[in-house]
Design a protein around this nucleic acid. Structure first.
Lengths: 197, 197, 197, 197
DNA sequence: AATGAATGAGCTTTCATTCAT
DNA sequence: CATGAATGAAAGCTCATTCAT
């Protein structure tokens, strides 16, 4: 077979795709090398083991995500901030799916992995804090019900990444709809909702 | 090693636990046999391969789930029906998590597996239909917003199984809260929700 | 399953059949127990291991064979004796096929096996000697070409057991034909056989 | 263990040897890898399973055999042709022994295996036809007795591969002798063969 | 006697990883 | 850099054999 250049970004792309499709344990170098038309051993020139590749990918993806929140302070209202965060969740839904595999990464694989995962945890924490802070402020200004735990609001917003995309609606409209439904509920105000107890 | 009796219900239990913890590809007979203190080969006396065990477990679990909907017709209002379904989602959240791995089961493993998975798909379809029907009726009687696609409502209700349980609140209260938040939204009616565009 | 009596003769029969069909290494207790509708472990009540069963079967079969030669001394001419031996080869062709697996039997399996195999070798040797003796006498009386090694004649006679049975001819006729062809050749006397060099 | 190069021809050689010694079911990769001083897994780099290796070997061997019959049309008399075929049987006796295991190959193992076995059956059929045709022609020209079924003649010629080699005679002489004995019989013409009934 | 259930040994196969070129 | 080839560890699976009932 003719020699094939390995491009890291392609490697990352394929790795992410396989992770989503097959799960963490279902990820194998063979699947990657087959799709990139390179030899399995070539990947080892760049990453010394499976977990290093995945951890490195995660850090890379997390960077993409964090970049979204650079100018967040300048966004006007807290609810607009929340919306911004939600939009970025939806925009990078696939990335968040991948990051969900973080707990599976074997940190003992190497020091590099350990470091990557530490960074990742750090950033994940930052992100979480940012979201919770915004939610708390929303509550303070009276935009979000005080009787709903912030963690629940955060959960609902985050889990929206798993909602299947609509094929009839544009992505923007679909996201708006979901955000709105979470905010206002799918119930009809003053409707026949007797079961709410 | 002293001979150890293998109980199918324990086997099922451990299998489900490992599936949730490690994912489909991360499931191995060794993990099971270690936890049950039996020999790996003993499991093969009952299930001739991984997929047969998992498929069999899924059918078993699905039966449990379907039993929940026996008396559903007698529930009074559609919204109460919806609540009933939601409650059973939450009650069997762990089961639904396991059933999410159904697409990974290798149907070619054996005819038994093929049959099990067919049954499963059938029941899954029935369940889906039931839920959608209830939602549609809720819309008709004016309990659920007509502008929200039923599939989205279904998604939100179903994905609630992934929300981490609260440690401060009783399960019943927690479920009520979630159901209520989905219905009425976490936003404050007539609050400062300018970002809803 | 209802308890099933295990009859040794059935066990022998099935064992022989499987040996012929699958070869020595392809023989498994599971195949036997399935065909006899008994439990695998039941066989161990009679034979303490695989090789013991097979060795025992072989001794049993060899006895059947040897019985054929009881009255051989009273047969008139040496060629008639040869024919008698040949007929018994053909009659017990399937048995001889089974006995061909003798070299595969693992004598270390147990002392019983060792003894059985020793008996077997002894009888095999006796049989061989008997055949060779008859051939030698045939040569002496001028019935068999002196220029053909007795071992070759023996080989040809014995290997006839592998010739597929004819479906058009009765077994007796078929055997006569083969014996005759071995004796007189399939060539036409004084025919165009220039390649015989 | 130091790394050891695996040569396909050695692999084929050892595979054939083990097949003859242990039979089809008695063939294991471990036996092979032990004899070649390579790791068992190394063999899987070349053949993805037992049957693929064996099927591949058989195709390879069959090619060797078929090459023998390239110039057969130019051989003068039919009896010389027959002799040519017989000689090649004897020359490649060990190959024919191996090919006898073809019915045991598990075609379901993979598509490659299926294809190989189809090729093999095809060639086997060609070979069979060739032999039968020559025999029929021999009959027509009066070299072979018309009262002997061609299938029997073919059987006798083919089964000669199982006759143990003589240690006292050269291979050429031994083959000539066998061919001659089959043609003319081991009986003495006009001798005391009263048992021929 | 006959059986169901359990086990270990050993074979099959996959895959991360190493190494010489 | 990229590769082909080799390897060991571990998972998948089969089967002879044991044991309590």
């Amino acid at each position: 077979m003719a020699r094939q250049k390995l491009h890291i970004d392609e490697l990352y792309e394929v790795t992410g795709k396989i992770l989503i499709e097959k799960g963490y344990a279902g990820f194998h170098f063979k699947l990657v090398s087959d799709q990139l038309n390179v030899s399995r051993s070539t990947i080892y020139e760049y990453f010394s083991n499976k977990d290093e590749l995945i951890a490195s990918l995660m850090v890379h993806l997390m960077d993409t995500i964090m970049a979204e929140y650079e100018g967040l302070e300048h966004v006007e209202t807290p609810m607009q901030k929340l919306r911004h965060i939600f939009d970025s969740f939806m925009k990078y839904a696939h990335i968040h799916q991948i990051l969900l595999f973080a707990p599976f990464v074997n940190g003992d694989a190497s020091d590099n992995v350990k470091k990557s995962m530490a960074t990742l945890r750090q950033q994940h924490h930052t992100l979480n804090r940012m979201l919770t802070d915004v939610i708390e402020i929303c509550k303070e200004v009276g935009s979000i019900r005080a009787d709903v735990p912030s963690s629940l609001v955060a959960s609902l917003l985050f889990q929206a990444i798993q909602i299947p995309k609509s094929r009839e609606t544009s992505e923007a409209d679909w996201n708006s709809l979901i955000f709105n439904v979470l905010l206002e509920g799918y119930g009809v105000p003053n409707g026949h909702n007797a079961a709410t107890t």
